[in-house]
Design a protein around this nucleic acid. Sequence first.
DNA 1: GTATTTGCAAAGTGTTTGCAGAATA
DNA 2: TATTCTGCAAACACTTTGCAAATAC
Lengths: 131, 131
Amino acid sequence: MTPKEIVHRALAENGDFASAQMLHARMLVAGSRIGLNTVYRTLRELVEAGRVDMIRDPGGAQLYRLRTGPHHSHYLFCRTCGHSVPLESEFVERWAVNAGQSHGFANVEHTIELVGVCAECSAENNGRREG
Amino acid sequence: MTPKEIVHRALAENGDFASAQMLHARMLVAGSRIGLNTVYRTLRELVEAGRVDMIRDPGGAQLYRLRTGPHHSHYLFCRTCGHSVPLESEFVERWAVNAGQSHGFANVEHTIELVGVCAECSAENNGRREG
DNA sequence: GTATTTGCAAAGTGTTTGCAGAATA
DNA sequence: TATTCTGCAAACACTTTGCAAATAC
């Protein structure tokens, strides 16, 4: 099995966003002999090829997830369990393009991340308040 | 001059987004004796107090900028010269809240960053193509 | 046999923490 | 004197790079 396949499989089995190191650990547990640098390299390639979406952890770490549709998505991410939901984001896409154009900016890329607590995790914390 | 004043002044003089280390270097150059950890600490406090906006560099580094208005802003950031423009973002703000609610997420925070090349930098690169 | 790919470990980057000394009340 | 704040340097987490062995053509 080539590294690319190993990484792809790990992403597919994981489903949600995971860090390179998490994915690497899983691969090792699954019996694959693969280096962390290869995982990073492959993930970078997949991101560049548009087959994987990448977001940034609140701590700054990069998290990866197999892209579901043909376009890049923005996600709603649960800070408690890590579950993520792709969003219908056509509006913001357009807003982003507009904002760039109206200020004379070229080659505008955007990063949009929503982080909260999903319904399930909220339910578990019913009696508690955070903050 | 207290560290808080030093940091605040450096932010004010810089105007645009700058990393903690850049700001620290400036302070040293300006003759202030201050530690990098104090800069980080103070910046964190200012962010928590809502007086400074923080974004993330494409490389993951944290950049800080004195907040201009009463609310947090989103910015259009030039990847070439580092210049930033605060955006009118009421629309996305609402989109973000909506997206969170419609999926049952609570305490949703958002990160929205637009990175491109500003008009001036584009002009300088007229004959060139990137990528 | 040459060019590419891989894995290990070391280096690099940005940020946070531990602790002793200085300033303050 | 007790408390808080500050700076240095070390620790820390994540990512990238250097290099030799393995693989492919």
